[in-house]
Amino acid sequence: MDDIAIIGYAQSPSQRRAELTEPQFLFPVISEAIERANVERRDIGFTCAGSCDYLSGQTFAFVMNLEAVGAWPPISESHVEMDGAWALYEAWVRLQHGDIDVALAFGSGKSSPGDPSEIYPLQLDPYTLTPLGADPVSMAALQARAMLDKGTITEQEMAEIAVRSRTNAANNPYAQVRGSGDVDTLLREPYVTAPLRRHDLPPISDGASAVVLATADKARAVCERPVWIRGIDHRIEPHQPGMRDLTESISTRQAGRHAGIDHGPVEVAELSATFSHQEKLLREALGLGDEVQVNPSGGALAANPVMAVGLARIAEAARAISERGVSRALAHATSGQCLQQNLVCVLEGA
């Protein structure tokens, strides 16, 4: 595989309820990513978007999002009904063909108009799961209980993860839930869906993220400090939650191995742990020790713009390298319920 680099990235601040429409808040994010990449819009040979029409509540809503890209004269573009991290994966594959040298990936979602507990059951098996209204919080709670029963996490640890996320988010201008509250206070809160409390859940967020990729020659020509994608891989597990071991993330472990995380030490990991217990599960699947800085941005517990949050993890990992001098970082994105599908991306500086 040819080396591909991240040469530009941008995010919108996550908001509980954005006043702007999805194309409107995407507009400045895409413009900023392109500007930071030091390329022209017409240099982009391929564009791939990640979004969800059910979130928007409108068929073909993803076509409206293209208005933020500049799609006239017609451009070469594609769309995934998945997190923008998978749009980046498609753009990365597209660049491997070698006939274009710049690609744009973005993700966006406006979760505030709908009710996530009613929308997400629609992504499940339509015969046995959707009609039960199997919502993501309940599904995550089944997973957390399985971990608690197995002794691989405690409610105290879950609260500690939430507190650290909020504390880390204090310095992140894009975050939505920032820091206060100690572990004991959080543990006195009632359960939302036992064994999960409010702090174990992600916020409902509206937001967008965008990343510009380039081939090696182009990246060196336009960018002082490209961030190299050394490996990227995604894997999936069976759909029925009762046919998986919810206390492990085999697909994350496989994706991590295929993305080459073992080829060197990881300094920073940005993980799409949308529920507190999932951070521990992912750490174990990826073999991340205490020396690894996990979610310095605050992660998905601090801002969860669905369809953009995984790509935002890649943008944050890239930012750690290009702006904070980290030499090797990884980013993780997830899709489906209880970490059914997982993507791992390994990034390095020069």
Partner: peptide, 30 residues
């Protein structure tokens, strides 16, 4: 494993608090 649903949504199968559970039925392996 199980999760206690305090406030059922209108899409849930029961209209009062209940548990979602993964149930291994007798004779089943999943």
């Amino acid at each position: 494993t199980w999760a206690w649903v305090t406030e059922p949504t209108r899409k849930h199968p029961l209209d009062h608090p209940f548990a979602f559970a993964l149930i291994r039925l007798d004779g089943a392996d999943t």
